[in-house]
Amino acid sequence: MSVATETAAPAPPKPRSRLEHRPGLNRWLPYALLAPAVLLELFIHIIPMLVGIWMSFVKLTKFFIANWSSAPSAGLGNYKVALDFNNAVGQGLLKSFGVTVVFSLVTVAFSWVLGMAAAVALQPEFRGRGIVRTLFLVPYALPAYAGILTWNFMLQRDTGAVNHVLNQLHLTDGKTFWLIGGNALISLITVAGWKLWTFAFLTLMAGMQSIPRDLYEAASVDGAGNIRQWRNITLPSLRPVNLVLVLVLFLWTFSDFNTPYVLFGTAQPPAGDLITFHIYNASFLTWNFGTGAAMSVLLLIFLMIVTGAYLLVTGRRSRRA
């Protein structure tokens, strides 16, 4: 954002001189240009969000969905149900929240490490670098559904490639369940990480292009090794990129819906019960959209707090530096 405004500032003089003849247009042009974005934002984000918040305060069950306006107010009832951890619904939400936290942290770490490793490995020029780069982007370019469905096939117990390979290598007896029981979380992290790491790779690679090469040259003249260069040049230079990247990765994984939905279908195991999927089930399977909306609002509040705290802490640190 800030970059865009900075570069835009010096440019205007030429077009402005032409438009000065028509002051009316000049005054309205910025608003006219902004209008589509504002409208879209309104219809795609703001209004649905407000409707969601409204829904969380009414008893929107199957008895009222044909005529929303007749749904009686529930006050804080939906929130009480969702947050009553002695009750089955609250306990389910809490468990799902725990699973999601573990899932997000591990997936983000996994994606970042893999993305960083690949970006560093492809930093020097060599023959075939373009091909490798393209190959690395495949998980990201592939439609999510197709990619995850392929994983679903590979992770089958009797016919899956994963069990076959592990068995051929004499690592397991080839009878491991990957999609039910405790292993489901491992599968979920692997698939989500596989889908996401290329984004980390892409971003970090782009960030690395802007690190002046002289720095590396100077460092290697001074005798710094690769690891030292990475720690003292690459990592600090990528700090602004990393700050945004980690936050975005976290928000994406935390609210990931496609991966569990496609990977597990209707038979999702408790170990892979991510929170957005849990909320979906709470609203669509039991037709209780009020409670589902209350859970969504709680999720929104949680993510806002995390994001706010993250920006506050990292912002303060970078100002100090």
Partner: peptide, 28 residues
């Protein structure tokens, strides 16, 4: 990493810009 960069540094700049453009269109 270091040595390769040193040897190629002279011609590297143009190469970078070109790959930059390619990268940007790729990102888009």
């Amino acid at each position: 990493m270091g040595p390769i960069r040193l040897r190629r540094s002279a011609g590297a700049r143009d190469g970078t810009r070109e790959s930059d453009v390619r990268l940007r269109s790729l990102v888009a």
